[in-house]
Design a protein around this nucleic acid. Structure first.
Lengths: 222, 222
DNA sequence: TAGATTGTTAATCGATTAACAATC
DNA sequence: TAGATTGTTAATCGATTAACAATC
């Protein structure tokens, strides 16, 4: 348990997240073990890389059976989300906020979406996916009372920065930002931008090249 | 105009997308020029890297005034989205689909969201953000008629793979995938995964470390 | 044992940085 | 000119790959 927390690089972190998702699914199928090459499929990485990633996470496998799923999931949960429970706030209960919520419901044992916030008075007081919606007036109070450390920011771009400052002042240390704005935050606060439009540009770029190079695959390699 | 299309790496592509967004915004403010360090702020990259990125995109700047905004936006549009017009289909008009649509409305001169699709019969026939919603029965027909090459896939995970196969068969060459599933596609088809849960794991990881290292910034460097 | 896996190491690859020369 | 910018190059950094030894 005195597991010295390793420093994990960003790309590795992304893969660990995907391993965990697959692992949870396999656990639900009552499986007990998984091989590195099975996990590799879920990310497109090589099996050797999976092994190195898991070693970094402090998970050790068996040469005959692969990795024990229960231990794997627990180790990843601890690494990604910490030993205790971290509470999360959803800020902005529009279409996007409501769409996101189900993704996080259940299966995350060290994270809990503890509260939601919205400007719209008609939404305040309602319960969405087991989560109570508060007005923005009580933002600081609720966040402090529940000791919330993480926020999902799903509000329109113009209000994003002001809300960020209130969240940080109230004790939030990490923000998943869906607003197409670069947030300014003090040191020690981490912002992860989830830019929905950026990847469409990438798709457009590759699709265009695919069409230009003739409808069929641009290379013959398997 | 016989601009040999450059091979652009993935991280560069992401930054170009962000430069374009900022550039569009500045154009809307009636500005005519922008400096590399101004663009740099939008991504967190260095000014020198911005210059290299833009050079790669074939955009050339002036030493006194920086980069001409109109030329910049046009060059990025052509690079990212092609010379002609590419049409896009939104598949799945749930909360997520409706939330995404406004992000793409307008400002994209070489991309057009031409059609939407949904299983729900009560949604079919409606018009959302200027975009007609079709039933899944006519998917292939509509995609072929409109020559759609790109799809935004915002459907539940279980139906994602089957729909992907129909889309590809009908001529789609690029997919922005919001379903938490790894899609199998033939060569020449590009899938960009937009995983909404992965970045929350990253946030949780960093937030947890921030809290562990004492509430204040973990390093003293500016 | 034979087979298939895991843990470990050196070599490759690519992106970023930093320093410089050139320009208006 | 002086100042601030752009275009260019060599050096650094880090992640990934590939090959190997060790294990059950």
């Amino acid at each position: 348990m005195v597991h010295k927390a390793p420093q994990v690089s960003d790309p590795t972190l992304g893969r660990l997240s995907l391993y965990r998702r697959l692992a949870s699914r396999l656990v639900a199928q009552s499986l007990t073990h998984v091989f590195s090459h099975e996990l590799a499929e879920s990310t497109g990485a090589s099996a050797a890389q999976v092994r190195r990633d898991l070693m970094l996470a402090g998970v050790t496998g068996s040469q005959r059976l692969g990795y024990d799923l229960e231990a794997l999931v627990e180790a990843l949960d601890v690494l990604l989300e910490g030993e205790g429970l971290q509470r999360v706030a959803l800020v902005g209960v529009g279409n996007l906020g409501r769409a996101i919520l189900p993704y996080y419901a259940g299966s995350r044992r060290h994270l809990e979406i503890a509260a939601a916030f919205d400007v719209d008075p008609t939404k305040v007081g309602r319960v969405i996916a087991g989560c109570r919606v508060h007005g923005l007036a009580t933002l600081e109070q609720v966040i402090r009372e529940l000791a919330i450390t993480i926020a999902i920011l799903a509000v329109p771009a113009p209000s994003a920065q002001a809300l960020t400052e209130r969240l940080v002042a109230a004790g939030v240390r990490g923000i998943q930002n869906f607003a197409p704005v670069r947030l300014k935050v003090p040191h020690g606060v981490h912002v992860e931008d989830q830019d929905l439009t950026m990847s469409l540009d990438k798709v457009a770029y590759y699709a265009q090249r695919a069409s230009a190079h003739g409808a069929q695959g641009e290379e013959d390699l398997p």
